[in-house]
Design a protein around this nucleic acid. Sequence first.
DNA 1: AGGTTGACCTGGACGC
DNA 2: TGCGTCCAGGTCAACC
Length: 272
Amino acid sequence: MPELPEVETIARGLDRRIRGDVIESVWIGSRKQPFKSRPREIASVLEGARIGSVQRVGKHMVADLQEPGGEHRGQWILHLGMTGRVVVADPTAEIPKHTHLIARLESGREVRFVDPRMFGKIAVYRDTDRFAAAGKEPLLVTTKEFTDLFRGRRTPIKSALLNQKLLSGVGNIYADESLFRSGIRPRRQAASLTRTELQRLHAALVEVLQEAILSGGSSVSDYVDSEGNEGLFQLEHRVYGREGEPCRICKRIIKRVVIAGRSSHYCCKCQK
DNA sequence: AGGTTGACCTGGACGC
DNA sequence: TGCGTCCAGGTCAACC
C-alpha cells in the first residue's frame, strides 16, 4: 500500500495528533511475523515513553521516544508493507481483524497497527542507535546525486527506481507515474538514460511525490491515513492502474507489462 | 557483484 | 453459493 506520499501523510497526522502523549501500556498480538524486534523488547522500550516527533524516513515511520524527564530513550520504527495501517482510535472502537499491536496512550486514545498480509514490520531502537534509510531521500537528493545513482546500472530504470538502496521511498505507483511524466519507458536500461533524461526524471519524481503528498496519497484499495481518511491522488494517476484505458495525453491505450515481477504501466507513444 | 525470481501472507475480484 | 485463479502499494533470500 504505502509509498513515500502515503507514509508522509500518516507520519504528519500522527505527529500532529500524538506528539507529547505518553504510552501507558502495550498489547502485542501473538503472530510474530510483523515484529522485527522481540515483543518483550518492543514493550519495554514503548511503555512509559513520551512520544516526540513522528517523521517519515523512506517508507518507514520513525517516532522519537523520550523518558518522562525528556531525555532521549529510543525510536519506534514502523514499516507498513503492502497492507499495513496505523490508526489513532478510541478504545471503544471495534478492534479489526489482523491487529498486531495496540499502544494505549495517557490521553485515553490508542495507536493501533493493523496489517492483514503481515508484510509490515515493527522495531524499536534504544539509546544512541538511530534508524537510517539505506538510500537517498527522493525529495532531498540533488540532481547530480540522482544521476550518479544510475551510472553503469544494467537493470531497467523501473527496477532501479524501486531499489530502496538507491532511493528510499519510491514504490510501484510513483515509479510508473514519474517515468510517464518524464517520457521514459520503464524497460530502458538505467545506464542508457542521457543526462537530460535523468534530469527530467528527477524533476518529474519530485513533482509527482509533492503533488501526491498534497492530495493525501493514493488510495488504490485500502490505504487510509491515521484518521481513517482516504487519499485522493489515485484520481490523478496517468498510467498506474489504467491498463487498457486511453492515455490522457495522446489517447493511445495504456499498456501493462511485468518488469522484475512488478506490474508496470506506460504509454508507448508518450514514452520512449 | 549485480540482476532476476520466488516466497512470504491474506483477501478481493472475476470466471465458470 | 462455491471453487479456482489471478492480482495487489513491499522486501528478502536464493539463485544465475
